[in-house]
Design a protein around this nucleic acid. Structure first.
Lengths: 195, 195
DNA sequence: GTCTATATCAGGATAGAC
DNA sequence: GTCTATCCTGATATAGAC
């Protein structure tokens, strides 16, 4: 295993531990055990606890970008509507990597309320996501104004974050969360001009 | 100052400290200083750290219930539409108590992902809120089906939580958060049957 | 680069006086 | 009920060998 692989393995482990215990519950010792390395090595590579969190946020963002766009090479291309649903509903699946990402994402957003140094990365990731959703909406409603698309995308992504929190905190069943999201997509598309 | 008053003062202080530092950042010592008492007294009244959190969640729920319904006795009665906007937008105001409540609420929801003992109180509070919003929607759209009202209320309240998180984590300006919420109310009302 | 061992210290919790 | 003083655990972080 190369050094780069090992660093990646540590960040994968960090995502798992954060999903399991939260940012608050992340213990460097537990992370070390999860990754099968010593605590000293973690500090060697990531400097300190804040460094672990920062790098893990980046890692999660990258991974989300990939599971959003990576598709089997032989799969039929998605139509825009399917792609839009995918993009939003992907955050709401009971699949390890996704659940980890969503949980870690929620945690990191919550943490960012009190740690300004996470804010920039968070704001940027949000911006990218909103832009992506707005673009997909634009494909489906080419005549809609750019501002209207952005507002709709902000509402949809904020809703997904909201229902995701409820899902992960056990307040809302997953299927219900997905249903609310699907309906909201429907509603926004109607709002942007009927089909 | 009576004992009951003192306990209330401690919980008010807890809400302030949680809003400022987060659940993870809550130090019993800082709480004690904020409330002007000793740490020993906190433990005397609340047993342990978990007890502080549990009681504080109850406290902010009660307080939110009151600032939602308390109104100057001489004020003109709100019409249902205003009342609906109030109920949802009240969580999005740059007023100390509200900001505290919203921040603490977001924190506690995030914490509940990993601490099952907070879940019940959280789920119950959410249920009450959804029911309240659904009832207000029902006043405005008496012909709508109950299930449709509930779904709309779930979407709206989840959206408010989502934009609230973004607001408090510095990703979205307050005015924008309010605007998105207002538009969403508009959209849900249209969806439930035009005015 | 990676480990074992350990320093350091913050903060939760309690004892005991008043 | 409330305080002062203190204990002690658990977690971050580092020293130094390999």
């Amino acid at each position: 295993m190369t050094v780069a692989d090992r660093k990646t393995a540590i960040m994968e482990a960090a995502a798992r531990v954060i999903a399991r215990r939260g940012v608050r519950g992340l213990r460097v010792e537990e992370l070390a055990a999860e990754a099968g390395v010593s605590t000293a090595l973690i500090y060697y590579h990531f400097k300190d606890r804040a460094g672990i969190l920062r790098r893990t946020l980046e890692f999660i963002n990258d991974r989300a970008a990939h599971y959003t766009t990576d598709r089997a090479p032989d799969a039929a291309p998605l139509d825009p509507r399917e792609e839009l649903e995918q993009t939003l509903l992907l955050e709401l699946q009971d699949v390890d990597v996704v659940r980890e990402n969503s949980a870690a994402w929620g945690e990191l957003r919550a943490t960012a309320m009190f740690e300004p140094e996470l804010r920039d990365a968070l704001a940027e990731a949000t911006r990218v996501w909103v832009r992506e959703v707005a673009a997909l909406l634009g494909d489906l409603r080419p005549t809609a104004a750019a501002a209207a698309l952005t507002v709709a995308a902000e509402r949809l992504t904020a809703l997904v974050e909201g229902v995701s929190m409820r899902w992960l905190s056990g307040t809302l069943p997953l299927e219900r969360a997905r249903e609310l999201t699907r309906d909201a997509i429907e509603a926004e598309l109607e709002r942007l001009g009927g089909p």
